[in-house]
Protein backbone atom coordinates (compact mmCIF):
# COMPACT_ATOMS: atom_id res chain seq x y z
CA UNK A 1 0.00 0.00 0.00
CA UNK A 2 2.74 2.46 1.00
CA UNK A 3 4.85 1.32 -1.93
CA UNK A 4 1.99 2.06 -4.34
CA UNK A 5 1.60 5.47 -2.71
CA UNK A 6 5.30 6.25 -3.30
CA UNK A 7 5.19 5.06 -6.91
CA UNK A 8 1.99 7.04 -7.50
CA UNK A 9 3.50 10.16 -5.95
CA UNK A 10 6.66 10.03 -8.04
CA UNK A 11 4.66 9.28 -11.20
CA UNK A 12 2.44 12.28 -10.45
CA UNK A 13 5.53 14.48 -10.07
CA UNK A 14 6.98 13.25 -13.38
CA UNK A 15 3.65 13.81 -15.15
CA UNK A 16 3.43 17.31 -13.66
CA UNK A 17 6.95 18.10 -14.93
CA UNK A 18 5.88 16.97 -18.41
CA UNK A 19 2.59 18.89 -18.22
CA UNK A 20 4.22 22.19 -17.17
CA UNK A 21 6.88 21.80 -19.88
CA UNK A 22 4.14 21.10 -22.42
CA UNK A 23 2.23 24.19 -21.27
CA UNK A 24 5.42 26.26 -21.49
CA UNK A 25 6.00 25.24 -25.11
CA UNK A 26 2.56 26.27 -26.29
CA UNK A 27 2.54 29.34 -28.49
CA UNK A 28 2.11 32.54 -26.51
CA UNK A 29 2.63 30.80 -23.18
CA UNK A 30 3.78 32.99 -20.28
CA UNK A 31 5.30 29.99 -18.54
CA UNK A 32 9.04 29.73 -19.21
CA UNK A 33 10.41 26.36 -20.27
CA UNK A 34 12.58 24.41 -17.83
CA UNK A 35 15.60 25.28 -19.99
CA UNK A 36 14.79 28.99 -19.64
CA UNK A 37 14.43 28.64 -15.87
CA UNK A 38 17.81 26.88 -15.72
CA UNK A 39 19.39 29.55 -17.95
CA UNK A 40 17.99 32.27 -15.69
CA UNK A 41 19.36 30.56 -12.57
CA UNK A 42 22.75 30.19 -14.27
CA UNK A 43 22.93 33.95 -14.81
CA UNK A 44 23.31 34.48 -11.06
CA UNK A 45 26.79 35.68 -10.18
CA UNK A 46 28.43 36.93 -7.00
CA UNK A 47 31.09 39.34 -8.18
CA UNK A 48 33.09 37.51 -10.83
CA UNK A 49 32.02 34.05 -9.57
CA UNK A 50 29.25 32.36 -11.64
CA UNK A 51 27.55 30.88 -8.58
CA UNK A 52 24.38 29.84 -10.42
CA UNK A 53 26.33 28.08 -13.14
CA UNK A 54 28.61 26.27 -10.69
CA UNK A 55 25.63 25.30 -8.52
CA UNK A 56 23.56 23.88 -11.36
CA UNK A 57 26.50 22.01 -12.93
CA UNK A 58 27.39 20.60 -9.51
CA UNK A 59 23.82 19.49 -8.86
CA UNK A 60 23.53 17.84 -12.27
CA UNK A 61 26.88 16.07 -11.89
CA UNK A 62 25.89 14.81 -8.43
CA UNK A 63 22.56 13.52 -9.84
CA UNK A 64 24.39 11.52 -12.51
CA UNK A 65 26.88 10.16 -10.00
CA UNK A 66 24.08 9.18 -7.60
CA UNK A 67 22.07 7.24 -10.20
CA UNK A 68 24.75 5.97 -12.58
CA UNK A 69 27.85 5.36 -10.49
CA UNK A 70 26.52 4.21 -7.14
Amino acid sequence: MMRALAIGGFLTAVLLFAAVEWAARREGSRIPSLADVCAFVMRYEVGPVPVGRIGLFGFWWWLGWHFLAR
Binding site: S29, R30, I31, P32, D36, A39, F40, M42, R43
Partner: peptide, 10 residues
Amino acid sequence: PAPRRLSSAA
Protein backbone atom coordinates in the same frame (compact mmCIF):
# COMPACT_ATOMS: atom_id res chain seq x y z
CA PRO B 1 20.85 33.91 -24.71
CA ALA B 2 19.27 33.57 -21.26
CA PRO B 3 16.11 35.44 -20.25
CA ARG B 4 16.84 38.58 -18.19
CA ARG B 5 13.81 38.00 -15.99
CA LEU B 6 11.06 35.43 -15.54
CA SER B 7 7.36 36.11 -15.39
CA SER B 8 5.35 35.12 -12.32
CA ALA B 9 4.05 32.17 -14.36
CA ALA B 10 7.41 30.53 -13.65
